[in-house]
Design a protein around this nucleic acid. Structure first.
Lengths: 225, 225
DNA sequence: GCGATTTTCAAGTATTCTATTAATTGCTTA
DNA sequence: TAAGCAATTAATAGAATACTTGAAAATCGC
């Protein structure tokens, strides 16, 4: 075997490590969870519906492909994505899947029973309004995820607290809610609740990584009260 | 199991199909080959050092993940990438690998014995000159790959023909050569040959997909003589 | 040292992957 | 319509790997 072949074989073998890491559904789910916020093992286990030992194994696999890192905080071990590029890569994977795999489209169509998809306002128009500052952006994910990273300028109103805090929202402005991304329905819920109270509310099915890819800045840290 | 879990499981299972498709070194290599040009099975087999039957299996796997498509042309079956997004995705995979896997860096460093890496001119500067039209861009890949897609305005001078055609190149202009990408050394060879004849030649270690990602337009079709 | 959390281990089962040879299919073209 | 070529499929075999789980062990803060 000549040098060049050996070189290619080795390079592709290395690249395949990443492919192997993302060839398991559960590991993809873990990466998605981690792209919202860093998490201790136990939480990951419960979010992904796996045993702790099992998650630990999957995390080990992800770690050996250098896609995640861990850090001990107190008694827990927190995992996080090793780099923002990981989230960007998984986003590409998801986009490719949505483009090429009709099954995904089908699934999403069947599962989404929400009303926002009949919105008369399309995504581009909403984004334009957000860019112009005409609309208020609402992050309805749990506060922890908001703290980890959110669209710059967005308000944090976790879905669970929406009812209680709805009176503080500006009734005269358009509201654009987002959550974890296209497969997450928290923002749909939020919009329905808001509309019931006569707010002009819309959903954007984007996660923070998607916002970022569209050129929006992200921030981290708590909301200023 | 509730609806949401079922939905997630199914979605991630679908996305993992793509992960599985790119979890094999040989399939990654095949995709890379196809990102240069569409090819019949037999050629793929010889380029990737595999048996025809084996390539056929791998192609089947890629096809079932909708990453490649095939078309019968005459007596042969030509395979091609199902969409430019596939090449873009594999590029992201490669970039992530280069960022995260030190092994790849190491390998490339060991394998590259060329001199161009000591170039005093860096990539950004070269790109600037190309954008300004100050430099001639040379595509040194086989003509077939040039025909499939090349950087707009680039000259096709396959490495094998370089010696014969060297006299037609402009001696007074800077020459920037490229080939299949970072792991391909044809452009290195070309630059060395050109410099031996006193041309001011440089290498850019970019493949067409990389050029495209940098905002350069691609063209296809034969060179105008 | 206690306790909580996480990792490792061992085991079992199942599955999967890759590559090869041989046979077959399906086209093209003579 | 038959010959010839390219590609696919089948059958096989062995290796390798993967996933999960329950129990034990390690780690580390307190």
């Amino acid at each position: 075997m000549n040098d060049e072949r050996l070189f290619k074989d080795t390079i592709y073998e290395q690249l395949a490590r990443i492919g192997k890491a993302v060839s398991s559904p559960k590991r993809l789910e873990l990466i998605d969870i981690l792209s919202q916020s860093s998490r201790p093992v136990e939480t990951l286990a419960s979010l992904a519906d796996l045993s702790v030992a099992n998650v630990s194994q999957h995390l080990k696999a992800l770690k050996s492909a250098r896609l995640v890192e861990s850090e001990k905080v107190g008694v827990q071990v927190f995992y996080r994505l090793a780099s923002p590029s990981v989230a960007a890569f998984i986003r590409e994977l998801r986009l490719l899947g949505e483009e090429r795999l009709a099954e995904i489209d089908q699934l999403v169509r069947e599962y989404r029973t929400d009303t926002t998809r009949f919105d008369p306002v399309d995504r581009d128009e909403l984004l334009r309004r957000v860019r112009r500052g005409e609309a208020v952006v609402l992050d309805v994910r749990p506060e922890e995820e908001y703290r980890h990273a959110h669209v710059a300028g967005a308000l944090s109103v976790p879905l669970r607290e929406l009812e209680a805090r709805i009176k503080d929202l500006p009734a005269d402005r358009e509201i654009v809610a987002y959550c974890r991304g296209a497969y997450c329905l928290m923002a749909v819920d939020a919009v329905e609740k808001l509309r019931a109270r006569n707010f002009r509310a819309f959903r954007l099915d984007l996660g923070v990584t998607d916002w970022q890819a569209l050129g929006f800045a992200l921030e981290s840290g708590s909301a200023t009260p």
